[in-house]
Amino acid sequence: METRELICIGCPMGCPLKVEMNNDEVVSVSGNTCKRGDVYARKEVTNPTRIVTSSVIVEGGSLAAVSVKTKEDIPKGKIFDIMKDLKGVKVQAPVHIGDVIVSDVAGTGVDIIATKNVL
C-alpha cells in the first residue's frame, strides 16, 4: 500500500488530498471536503493528463512566432518529449487557427495545432 499526496485544484480551498494506492488501484481518497476532490484525485493518480502549449517560429508572416497546442490532452509524462519535438520547428506563413503544425507529436497520436492566425 502506498500513499500519494495532492492538492485539489477544484476550488480556492485547495484541500490536501491523501490517496491510498494498492499497486495501480485507488483504495481510498481522504482529505477532500467535496465530491470534486475525489474525482480529481482518482484521475490525477491513475491517468494525469495536460494540454501542452508553446510557440514555434513562423517565416514570412506578420509575426515572428505562432502559438500552438496539443489538440487533446496528453499524458503528463510526455510533456518534455513534446517540447523536444517542437524545438527547431519552423512554419511558413500563412498559418490559421487549427492548422496541423506537427502530426503525432512524440508518438502520442496527438497533433500539434496552431492557436493563432499569422498571415
Binding site: 494540454i51 502549449t53 508553446s54 510557440s55 502559438s67 500552438v68 497546442k69 487557427i97 492557436t115 493563432k116 492566425n117
Partner: peptide, 25 residues
C-alpha cells in the same frame, strides 16, 4: 490574450478550454 498562449480561457463563455489567442480570435 495574444501573449497568453496557455489554455484555460473560455470555460464560462464558450464551455470549452481555449488558449488566449483562440479566445481573442
Amino acid at each position: 490574450l495574444n501573449q497568453c498562449i496557455h489554455n484555460g480561457f473560455g470555460l464560462h463563455t464558450f464551455k470549452e478550454e481555449l488558449t488566449g489567442p483562440e479566445y481573442a480570435g
